[in-house]
Design a protein around this nucleic acid. Structure first.
Lengths: 147, 147
DNA sequence: TTTTTTAATGCATGCACATGCATTTATATC
DNA sequence: GATATAAATGCATGTGCATGCATTAAAAAA
């Protein structure tokens, strides 16, 4: 097999694994916690921050969403589920909106984290993810040798 | 760091890498070939098949889309770009629709493949993908040891 | 065996929704 | 006042879910 086909096939495997894990996570979070994967990420990043608060701008980059998508997601999350996050203005810069995780949000996050860990562990065990990933690394290394 | 945080962080790295590569590919394909990543996958899978034709159902599983999304994508692709694929009915089972890649489609695919390879190579070299991936593999191994 | 009925299958479509892009609004900085 | 920045908003698009339609397969009745 040519090295080009190799590269493409490896990328396809990589994509497939990501999609499978991602869909599985999303499906289970939806079923058990009525929560989106992106909503989980927002809670997680907020909770990980010492101050428990982040600007929408920062959050947007962490979650990997566009500015408008993050703005709307934050609004949805504030309204939904009895408010897992809260949107506050900054005193020093009133353009900014800062999102904080509420006590209820922390509680929900704890529950969700259990599910996420469980699901990831199970999926990792059953999928042949490591062979695909090793393959990916090998392709990358061989690319670098040929420079 | 706890093994649970380890698992989550590894998943986050994995997701981030996939998103970065995927966005980069999508952006460049859009700019150079006016083509979506999913459209590229459709052409690729059709071309890889010896018969050069696949049922929508099969295509749907390969590309990783829902049934409705695949149905619409195939229609868009038939209408767009002077028809890179063609939708035909089956004689033996008139419920099925089969997609075939046209000559024009094969030509386009060749062009696109060059870009995809180039982009993947470049992105792989610049990203710190292997540390993240090795991390992932380690996590999986340690999970299996603790069984 | 032929006909009739019931279930399954493959795809298309209405609908709701999350997302990105482009633009606007409000505030801050110069 | 002019420019820059953070977020909100209008709009278009792609997606999934639920549903409907046409066709095929399977089972029952004749």
């Amino acid at each position: 097999m040519s090295s080009e086909q190799n590269l493409i096939n490896t990328w396809l495997s990589f994509t497939r694994i990501h999609a499978e894990l991602s869909n599985e996570l999303d499906r289970i979070l939806q079923a058990r916690h009525q929560t989106t994967l992106n909503e989980f990420y927002v809670l997680l990043f907020l909770s990980k921050t010492p101050a428990k608060k982040l600007r929408l701008l920062e959050l947007q980059q962490l979650v990997g969403l566009s500015q408008s998508a993050m703005s709307r997601l934050s609004v949805r999350m504030e309204n939904k589920s009895c408010g897992v996050i809260q949107r506050l203005g900054y005193e020093d810069d009133r353009r900014g909106v800062c999102a904080t995780i509420t006590d209820r949000g922390e509680l929900r996050l704890k529950e969700i984290l259990t599910t996420v860990n469980e699901t990831l562990e199970k999926s990792l065990k059953t999928s042949d993810i490591d062979t695909a990933l090793k393959f990916f690394i090998n392709v990358k290394n061989s690319l670098q040798e040929n420079e």
